[in-house]
């Protein structure tokens, strides 16, 4: 669930949730059409990459309060966070966010990236984990910050479901993935690394 505080929409961070208004819903819906170019089945909202959505209008800055739907003259400010800091997809995502929000009827968009707090795979939704597994990539287990333990925990094969799989290489086809082999079906697959 997304929540809103003082006109700032945050992802599960607002202490006093109120329902999204029409403009906010439109922006979040637009963001949910932006996928990670290296994992086309996941959108950036379910990956937990959107940190903040806010609107700036002349009226907002004058009164400090936010009421009613925003005019298309408002500037939409979207803050996203990188998965891995060297990931080249970040620039593509920034551009795609801007065009998706523009297409939703907000011509003025500002996209920035924020490093802190660092993104964790714990911010992925359960739906995202399920989609990853169906796509053939083993999802990262939730770790609650105990990364070392998550890295050594058993990983289920996304193809046959066999619980015994072995790490082949801690690095894969993208920064976020490692390569494993299944002891059941003997297929090689990738896992999204817990981060």
């Amino acid at each position: 669930m997304n929540s809103v505080l003082n006109g700032v929409t945050t992802n599960e961070r607002g202490p006093q949730p109120r329902p999204l208004d029409a403009s906010e819903q439109a922006v979040w819906q637009a963001l949910a059409t932006v996928t990670d170019p290296e994992i086309p089945v996941l959108n950036i909202v379910e990956m937990g990459l959107v940190r903040e959505v806010s609107f700036r209008t002349a009226a907002t800055s004058a009164t400090g309060a936010e009421t009613g739907p925003r005019a298309s003259t408002a500037t939409v400010h979207v803050v996203i966070t990188p998965t891995f800091s060297g990931c080249p997809a970040l620039h593509v995502i920034e551009e795609n966010v801007a065009s998706a929000v523009r297409d939703a009827g907000f011509p003025q968009v500002e996209v920035t990236s924020r490093l802190s707090p660092p993104w964790s795979t714990d911010e992925m939704t359960d739906v995202a984990r399920r989609k990853l597994e169906e796509f053939g990539i083993a999802p990262p287990q939730p770790h609650g910050g105990l990364l070392q333990i998550a890295l050594d925990a058993p990983v289920r094969c996304p193809r046959c479901g066999h619980p015994d799989t072995r790490l082949r290489n801690p690095f894969g086809s993208a920064l976020c993935r490692e390569i494993r082999t299944c002891q059941g079906c003997h297929e090689t697959f990738e896992r999204f690394k817990p981060l």
């Binding site: 800091s85 060297g86 080249p88 690095f171 894969g172």
Partner: peptide, 20 residues
């Protein structure tokens, strides 16, 4: 081949950290 991929990943990370 797998180590080719691994070292390229490490390189990409280090250069990403340099950017930060």
């Amino acid at each position: 081949l797998e180590e080719d991929i691994a070292i390229a990943n490490v390189a990409q990370d280090e250069i990403g950290h340099a950017v930060l």
